[in-house]
Design a binder for these strands. Structure first.
Lengths: 133, 133
DNA sequence: CTCGTTATATCGCGATACGATATAAATGAA
DNA sequence: TTCATTTATATCGTATCGCGATATAACGAG
């Protein structure tokens, strides 16, 4: 591996700055919708699942957090009536999490805004990725 | 704007999952180096600056946080002797932040690892961006 | 039935970013 | 100059988050 030049550091910093800008947009959009950023991410992860309402564990994996961190996230969402818990019929240890109608409505608005933002910044992100292959 | 389909939600969720995986890699690498993720980001942002040691305000802008949040971050880095503060000669309100040799060494290791990881995941990220243009 | 494993839940902690506010220095109008 | 305004950094208290350690409950192998 070649030594790092100042240009390498700048490329890494520029890429991270672009990521932070996107994440800042996302946080602002979530808060404008009355959600914390993590709550929004949880709703999207649930909605995006292939096989219907995921278990806590599957959700944690999708969000790259520990299962017990997902528990707290779901606790806060359930307290706001944005998700419902349902025991698995076959394995009563597992809990499946589903969106309520209110959550679906919020997520639709947020997802449309995020799709538009990603369309806007996709060229920039691609350009910032080119130095890395 | 067209209505959102299940495929749209899946695309958004998949993109966010890829971002989270990268960020999880980055957090793990930072902690293995003895830094918090934000401390690592601050070091990279300082190193990547075009015009030498940035002010607190410029650093905050690069990290997309408020200036007073950057103050706290720099406080913790300075307490660990990873950055030094220096007053601006012309405007004594401004404080420029520079890396110490110890920080440079840590950042070099981390940046090499991040460059390798980005080279590894660039094709995946590009693929996940294509639905958005 | 018992033991080990798995899935979810609880508790307390440290790091973070914020709003509100404070201090100090620079700037500008009269 | 004088003093109000703006700018840059700093301080304080607060809330969220994710973690490690631990607990509880249910599954599965033998």
């Amino acid at each position: 591996m070649a030594a790092l030049t100042q240009a390498d550091y700048r490329q890494l910093a520029a890429f991270r700055h672009a990521l932070r800008r996107f994440l800042a947009f996302s946080e602002q959009a979530a808060e404008a919708a009355g959600l914390t950023p993590q709550q929004h991410q949880a709703l999207l992860a649930i909605k995006g699942m292939e096989d219907g309402p995921p278990t806590i564990g599957a959700l944690a994996e999708q969000l790259c957090i520990r299962p017990h961190s997902a528990v707290g996230l779901i606790d806060r969402l359930a307290a706001r009536d944005l998700v419902t818990r349902a025991e698995d019929r076959a394995d009563r240890r597992q809990v499946h999490v589903a969106l309520t109608a209110a959550a679906e409505a919020m997520l639709e608005v947020l997802s449309a805004a995020h799709r538009a933002e990603l369309e806007r910044i996709a060229p920039t992100l691609r350009a910032l990725l080119t130095p890395f292959g």
